[in-house]
Design a protein around this nucleic acid. Structure first.
Lengths: 347, 347
DNA sequence: GTGGAACGTGCAATCGATTGTAGTGTCAGG
DNA sequence: CCTGACACTACAATCGATTGCACGTTCCAC
């Protein structure tokens, strides 16, 4: 069922059918013809072929979305937001995963570009991908989302992770903690670096140094949290922190279970702040204090910026930065027992 | 950068370039030419245009994926699985949401078909969508995933929710509970109906009737769980169940908090079994006993079935059914106190 | 009555890759 | 020396929608 079929069934030219069916062009066609065409199209179940249209018009109505890993629960809301912002224009996301592998990103990008996506939203960038992404950005609108790229000309839609890290720090500092540590995510990923910077800066403002772990979680998942927590446990006595900032909730949960295994209860013995405010994280034991990651908003905004860039390739890249909020729950509290020193902090 | 550009830069015809670049056709071209073409393509940064190719060949290398709601955390692994199975063939999913709105599904389907997807995987069907989906299935491979359609000719890739419901029931029955209730999901969605059937059947086998709530959760989210739990609380005394099967974890969590508000502790006063084994559900308080939903497997299998259908439209629709497993944790236990009767069950 | 808007429609080219067919050239066997 | 086979390449059509241009009407104004 093509334009031509409808055209011949009506004895008109396909171009007339095309115009009659396009609301923006229908005024070029007589009213009667428009009606007959529409009726015939509906009757014959004409659906149109966006592929052919895309070829001719050079616009596919798709936006490529690059993510590290779809299985990571925190990315779903972002895609949801993107899809939402695209839907009113009948545009669709094409999602591709890189398995959080820096080198796969390039081929993913290539794949998307060969499909002539109207824009690319990259929500899974690592620092080493910057050049490739900027190169792509010269011919196609590219929006960096979620994982920022310092010092890039590309449009970026991010959550203010630096402020988020600082917020976590201030919360813990405000509770009286003085020995703080971080469970860090990979250090070539923008948001973890920012969280780290923000956290450390806020501590420095109070004249405190953060206990530095020799490793970071290369994949910021539960197991990484467990591993890093064990490293912490190994620091006995004064070296042991009383509060921990985990760069995401998964790592926080991993740490939590290791602490528990070692007889430490949270928050009595040790406080934890997580990041993302994951869906059910408010009902874990103890309910996790966590920096809220507004995934849907970030996604929606990234979609909007992409649309904007498609309409007019601005020389000054637009962007957005969402401020953090903290969901204060029970996993961070003034210290009661200092398990390694045997002293008790005042509350 | 098109085939033609490469062709003219080499003084050959575009058709030759096309063949040289296609591994399956390269044998038709002299070795020297192939090399020169490949070199030129690489040097000029030729990427190809899948849109043009799709038009000519009638194959887009995309699979439409219809989901109810991307924000629902349980769907992400399914999409992950689909993307994984598609990736080796350089195919990409096109994801579209229906907002769990039965009537939006039809336009979503239309949209996907107008984009000439090679197949459709519908992971968000409601019963009322059956005819539309089957109609679409006549011209394009359609795979029903996650949410089954009873009595349909379409290929279906499902989790055995009926067995899952039965498994939940047997677990609770095995713990000695005799007054059971369900927190049901919408009753025009396949998996909830199956869970319901399975649960009820297993109870019937033991000669027990399930306490029937007058309502179901139209959207199976936390609030629905809270609401339904309140209805249960209103059933005092003997009418009140001692164990609850929630059709998913979100509803379980909602119920849990309502029970807690009413002074009921889980599992001492009331047992709960959830469904999906959501990411962090093992660390809530109490760790939730939950039927494991193998989302990635279901997604992967659905993708594979779609590929199979694309290759050869079988008259006998293939399909798959994954058996349930139970993650036994702490939220379901033998009853200790019967809060409304003041008696104590034996453990 | 005529010039010329204004409108409606058709024609044909186009987007870029693919592919059936035909053409050229080379070589081996008879 | 001729012929058939084979290897390579070019030509041109095709997928289906879109759109600039041109043609033909109608109708109003001068």
């Amino acid at each position: 069922m093509t334009l031509k079929d409808i055209a011949s069934s009506l004895g008109v030219n396909a171009s007339t059918v095309s115009r009659a069916l396009d609301p923006h062009k229908a005024h070029l066609v007589s009213e009667g013809t428009v009606d007959r065409v529409r009726a015939a199209a509906k009757q014959l179940g004409y659906r149109g072929d966006r592929v052919a249209g895309a070829l001719r018009r050079g616009v596919t109505g798709t936006v490529g979305v690059i993510v590290a890993d779809l299985a990571n629960p925190f990315i779903a809301p972002v895609i949801h937001g993107i899809a939402q912002s695209l839907a009113p224009r009948q545009m669709l996301p094409m999602v591709i995963e890189t398995n959080d592998n820096a080198s796969e990103l390039e081929s993913s990008l290539d794949h998307l570009l060969s499909r002539r996506v109207d824009a690319v939203i990259c929500a899974g960038a690592r620092f080493s991908n910057r050049d490739v992404l900027e190169e792509a950005g010269r011919s196609t609108p590219v929006v960096i989302a979620v994982r920022g790229l310092s010092n890039s000309v590309l449009a970026q839609v991010l959550h203010d992770d630096r402020a988020g890290g600082a917020m976590a720090a201030r919360h813990l500092l405000g509770l009286g903690h003085t020995r703080l540590a971080e469970l860090r995510g990979p250090d070539d990923v923008g948001n973890f670096v920012s969280r780290h910077l923000g956290f450390r800066e806020a501590c420095a403002e109070e004249g405190l140094a953060v206990i530095d772990l020799p490793e970071v979680g290369e994949r910021p998942i539960r197991e990484a949290g467990e591993h890093l927590a064990r490293l912490l446990i190994d620091l006995h006595g004064d070296a042991m922190p009383t509060a921990v900032f985990a760069h995401n909730d998964l790592m926080a949960l991993g740490a939590l279970s290791v602490f528990r295994q070692h007889g430490l209860t949270c928050p009595t013995d040790i406080s934890i702040v997580g990041y993302n405010d994951s869906p059910t994280i408010d009902q874990v034991d103890p309910p996790l204090t966590s920096v809220i990651y507004p995934g849907i908003k970030v996604g929606r905004s990234a979609g909007e910026v992409a649309l904007q860039l498609i309409n007019e390739p601005a020389e000054h890249a637009p962007g957005a930065m969402f401020p953090p909020r903290l969901a204060v729950r029970k996993s961070a509290a003034p210290l009661v027992n200092d398990p390694f020193l045997g002293r008790t902090h005042a509350t």
